[in-house]
Simulated assay, not measured.
Amino acid sequence: MQHHIIVSFGKDAEYEYRLSAPGAADEARQWFDREFVKLECDVSTPTGKILAVDRILSVAKYAGDARFKTDAAWAGEFAKNTAAILGRDLIRVDVEQYSIGY
């Protein structure tokens, strides 16, 4: 399965990634857990539980547009791990709207 991941910070700041093998979901969750802590992400949820989509959106938000623009290796890891966790062939991470679409 081919995966297409789009990370959007607005109309003029979109990053697209195409992958054929995203990797294991457990490893992807661990990667997001580490990045969530490194970036000192803060998410408030009504239940107090942080879901995978909250981690993905928060890591993208706290990393910021500049990280995707200047650190291709990190951005590729973000895309690969997003695909591994969500398992969809098309994923749009809309940081500006704080939403994920399929």
Rank of each mutant, 00 (worst) to 15 (best):
K38A: 13
V95Y: 00
K80R: 13
D65Y: 08
I6V: 13
K49Q: 14
R88M: 15
A83H: 01
Y102H: 10
I6K: 04
A28N: 03
A84W: 15
E77Y: 09
F36N: 04
K80Q: 12
W74H: 12
T45A: 15
R67V: 11
A84I: 09
D54C: 06
R92W: 05
A28H: 05
E40R: 12
A60I: 08
V7R: 01
F9L: 07
V53C: 10
H3W: 01
L51V: 14
E16I: 12
S99E: 15
V59I: 05
A60D: 01
A73I: 08
Y17R: 08
I91D: 01
T47C: 01
E40S: 09
S8R: 02
A21D: 14
P46V: 15
L51T: 15
R55P: 00
D71N: 14
Q97R: 15
R92S: 00
G10F: 04
I6L: 09
R92I: 14
D94Y: 05
E96S: 08
L90S: 05
A25I: 11
N81I: 04
G101H: 12
T70Q: 14
V53T: 15
E35T: 07
G23K: 01
E96I: 08
L57C: 03
Y15M: 01
N81E: 01
I56C: 02
L57H: 06
D65F: 11
G101P: 03
E14Q: 14
E35D: 10
A21N: 09
T82M: 02
G23H: 04
H4K: 02
L39Y: 06
T82I: 06
D89C: 01
A66T: 09
V37P: 02
D12P: 04
A66C: 05
R29Y: 03
F36Q: 05
F36E: 07
D94I: 00
G64A: 10
V43F: 02
A60L: 05
A25W: 11
G64L: 05
E40W: 02
D89H: 10
D26M: 11
A60H: 00
V43I: 14
A21R: 10
P46W: 11
I85F: 11
A52L: 06
Y102Q: 11
A52C: 09
D54E: 13
A13M: 10
E35I: 07
F32K: 07
A25C: 11
V93D: 03
I5F: 02
G48Q: 09
A83L: 06
A79N: 03
A75R: 13
I100C: 09
L39K: 07
Y15K: 04
K80I: 04
V7G: 00
L51W: 10
